[in-house]
Every structure is written in C-alpha cells, then in structure tokens.
C-alpha cells in the first residue's frame, strides 16, 4: 500500500498576526473612501431592503465590497459598518469568519482546488501541487498584479459538493469537473494568457469581481445574466441515475391521477 503523496500543507490559514499597534488616543475613523460610489450605496440599500432586519444584509454587503475592491479592505469594513450602523469590530468579526472573504487583494480569477479527502485521493492534491509549482504561489497567494488580466489567486478548498465529478476545481466559483494535472495546468495557462475557457458547468467565465457582484445579488448586464443562467448544469454524472432509470423503464410508483384528498383537519 502506498501513502498518497500530498497533504501539501495543513488546511489552516496562515496564522494571522496583526501588526503591533499602540493606542494613545482614539484614532479618527476617516470617512469611507469614494471607491464606494453612489451606485454601490444604492445597491447596499437594495440589499438591506430584501430582509426584515437590516443586519441580515451583512454577508451580501461583504460580497458587494469584494465586487468593488476584489477583497475586503479596512475601508470596505467601514463601508459595511457605516451602512448597517455596526462597529467596525462587529463587521471584522464577521468578515474574518468566512473563507470567501479575502483579506488581501485577489487576482482577476480565484482558482480553488478541492483537496478534501475524496478529491485528494482521486488527484486533487496532485493538481494543487502542480498548480502551486506552475504559478509559483501558495495558498491564498496571487500571481500577477492583483486585479489585472491574467492574475490568479490560488487556494485549496474544502469539499465543493461535486464529489461525483471528482477531482474538481472552481474558477470564480464556476465548476471545472473531472480535472487532471494536465487539464488544470492547461486551464491556468489559458487564464494567465487572458483567455476564459468555459467551465464544465456554470456560466461563461467572467472574473472574481463580477461573480462577487452576482453573489451580492446584482448583475450589470441583463443579457449576460440570462446567458449566465442558461449556462450548462447537468453533467453526465449528475444524470446517470435518472437516465439509467429511463433506459430500464424504472420509475417511482405511479401517483394517483388526481391529487389525493388531504387528511381531515386535525381536531384541536
């Protein structure tokens, strides 16, 4: 029996060590920068309006911040805090809890390689190791000037819920199924060249910021949005069971022709 090569590193994030600070007096919190423009502020209001309680908007707002900045900066935290009347500590507490909120500027694309057990056993660890070597970066590091065409942030991800299609990776959360070292290398090479190879399932590839805007609940272009929705979904693997049933003539027992009567109203 061989021990699979891999476990490239632990899954823990780099231990975070905030720079040493001294507080002699309360510093001024400067105003939120104009990066968060009127459109963004309107969108923030739109998000808040979706919920019965404003604070529910915080996760989408942080996605919105990432669509503007490509990560969550201190400015972005202030934007959320100001919008929801929270303290920046409360927003920081949330922003640092979730894996998808990135603390450093990200590339045009975020490449997430599943290295959870099943994908890893089927080659995910090898893919991740190969991409690290190819791009010369590690977990949550970026090759290229963040945000510019062809720049890539790499990460190893936990289970991406596509185990029947293992090993998988995502680019900007679009699925690239049944990957191999060669296909993954070809994919990142293309991304580095500024190309956008179509995902196996999902919408035509855009970039991380566009996708973050979608996660926040907005799309800039209705036509693109429609195309995005129509992007491929069912992989052959997904449909195997239902197709096999169709081929074999297997089906669930037939339902009654009419909807059956509902049970009587229970007595109080």
């Amino acid at each position: 029996m061989t021990l699979p090569e891999g476990n490239p590193e632990t899954n823990s994030r780099v231990a975070v060590a905030p720079a040493e600070r001294t507080w002699t007096a309360q510093p001024d919190q400067g105003p939120v920068s104009p990066t968060f423009d009127e459109l963004t502020r309107q969108r923030a209001k739109g998000i808040i309006a979706r919920y019965p309680v404003a604070r529910s908007a915080l996760l989408p707002l942080l996605h919105l911040v990432q669509s503007v900045e490509g990560h969550v900066s201190q400015d972005g935290i202030r934007f959320c805090a100001e919008t929801l009347e929270l303290t920046t500590a409360e927003v920081s507490a949330v922003a640092t809890f979730y894996t998808m909120y990135k603390r450093t500027p990200c590339g045009e694309h975020l490449v997430s390689v599943c290295t959870n057990t099943l994908c890893a056993a089927l080659g995910g660890d090898d893919i991740y190791a190969a991409l690290k070597a190819r791009l010369g970066i590690g977990h949550e590091e970026t090759v290229g000037e963040p945000g510019t065409t062809g720049s890539i942030t790499l990460e190893h991800a936990e289970c991406l819920a596509a185990c029947d299609l293992a090993p998988v990776l995502q680019v900007n959360y679009e699925y690239y199924d049944n990957q191999s070292v060669a296909s993954a290398e070809a994919l990142v090479d293309a991304l580095r060249r500024g190309e956008k190879p179509p995902p196996t399932r999902g919408a035509p590839l855009t970039d991380l910021r566009t996708v973050e805007l979608e996660l926040a609940g907005f799309t800039d272009d209705p036509a693109l949005a429609a195309a995005a929705v129509a992007g491929p979904s069912a992989a052959p693997e997904t449909l195997r069971g239902v197709q096999m049933a169709a081929e074999r003539g297997w089906a669930a027992p037939a339902m009654p022709g009419e909807h059956p009567a509902l049970p009587p109203l229970p007595e109080k």
């Binding site: 975070v16 905030p18 202030r78 500590a89």
Partner: peptide, 15 residues
C-alpha cells in the same frame, strides 16, 4: 475574530 483554532479576541484595525 477569525475562526476555529485561529479564533481570537480583537478589535477592528481602526478602532
């Protein structure tokens, strides 16, 4: 701040 074994008490960077 942070999560899991990295969880820690802290303030915001600006306050």
């Amino acid at each position: 701040l942070e999560r899991g074994a990295n969880q820690q008490i802290g303030t915001a960077e600006d306050m």
